[in-house]
Design a protein around this nucleic acid. Structure first.
Lengths: 217, 217
DNA sequence: AAAGAATGCGACTAATTATTCGCGTTTGTC
DNA sequence: GACAAACGCGAATAATTAGTCGCATTCTTT
């Protein structure tokens, strides 16, 4: 294992080179596909480079043509999801804030549905997310995204109630994220009907959590 | 790495031998101490056997006198906590069930306080718990304990409301566990004041979650 | 104090696996 | 079809680390 890189400051993440020929861009897809499939098969355990290469019908050398290291592969898979999260929350801040309890409940519901959709649409990606959380090298990167998400939930809360203190907003944001994430992860491991029931439960909890902090009549 | 054991069926967990002389039982303590300290220092990453031995002022050979493998060390640390969880919940089932909303609220509060105390009293152990969750070999063992805990939360719910369907009870139990665990883990990483605020939030969410499923007047 | 059991040691073994590098092959371009 | 660039290959390298084993030391017992 030539892993001296990891020690320096952080993991290299940029792709080693851009694919120039058509065949190679298909190769990148095959690598990502293989990594996803294997992570799912092995239940949240990051696959080895050799396993990824073989499953993609390639050699290890080819994998390293496009990815600087193993971590970058998993991260590539997760990145679109991780970055779409802040986007979705940000979009819910652009609208006019609610003026009464019923409007507020509707806003919670919208945010709730939008974020739920991110989980449902990317259900197959969840093992990768779990693998990243379980990897000491990748967790710091996860945490950066998490901090962003918490900050945006907090911003959303202050959009709904501008009088909300920063500290309270970020605490509530943190809990919204944590509760949503934990419940949805276990929900996705069960059947669709149970997932939907769990979703209702989460919405109830979210509402109960934030209601006391909103000065709406 | 002579790891053929792990492949067979499961990890050996029994201690290799019982300490017979006083010096050696102190050694076991030193090993566990070192493992705990190092896991904390490295932030939820399982330390190597060499690091554990050195930090305990021992050689690797001595570590293997008392532990069959590295996993057993972490598990030894976590086990008391993992098994005290079901005990604490079971104790809350022994009392007479509540007969009205106020008594019910009190019962939730008691269960809530008891489980919270488990986290506060074992705060230093949480990195080990996280390391176990992040280790593919140990997760199955975690899951067994989790299943027990969910079953007991469900039993508690049915104790409070015998008419509650099994399916609903176990779903709510699962969410109580997940929400409690996720929120308390992040709570413990913050200051005590914030932890207490998060605790209040969790209680609010628990109550909101289970209230609709209780036929009390 | 002598024997034997328990404990402690740490160099060594071996399994695993990330990453490299030089060479052969394919592709796009003129 | 010839040339260069891109691509693909996989044996070899090297880092890491779990676990062993025979010998040395310390304790217990008589």
């Amino acid at each position: 294992m030539k892993r001296s890189l990891s020690r320096e400051t952080r993991i290299a993440l940029e792709p080693r080179k851009q694919p120039r020929q058509q065949r190679s861009s298909k190769v990148v897809d095959r690598i990502l596909d293989a990594a996803l499939t294997l992570t799912r098969e092995q239940g949240t355990k990051a696959p080895t480079t050799l396993a990824i290469a073989q499953h993609a019908g390639l050699s290890v050398g080819s994998v390293y043509q496009y990815f600087p290291n193993k971590e970058a592969i998993l991260l590539d898979l997760a990145r679109r999801w991780l970055s779409s999260f802040p986007e979705v929350i940000a979009r819910r801040i652009e609208v006019a804030p609610p003026t009464n309890r019923e409007e507020f409940r509707q806003e919670v519901r919208k945010l709730f549905i939008d974020t739920s959709k991110l989980y449902l649409d990317n259900a197959s990606l969840m093992p990768v997310i779990e693998a990243i959380s379980g990897n000491a090298d990748l967790r710091p990167i996860q945490n950066e995204y998490d901090d962003q998400i918490v900050a945006l939930y907090a911003a959303w809360l202050q959009h709904v109630n501008p009088a909300l203190e920063d500290k309270v907003a970020s605490r509530l944001g943190l809990l919204m994220m944590e509760v949503g994430h934990a419940c949805r992860l276990v929900g996705l491991k069960r059947d669709r009907k149970t997932y939907d029931l769990i979703e209702d439960d989460v919405e109830v909890m979210w509402l109960a959590l934030v209601n006391p902090y909103l000065n709406l009549d």
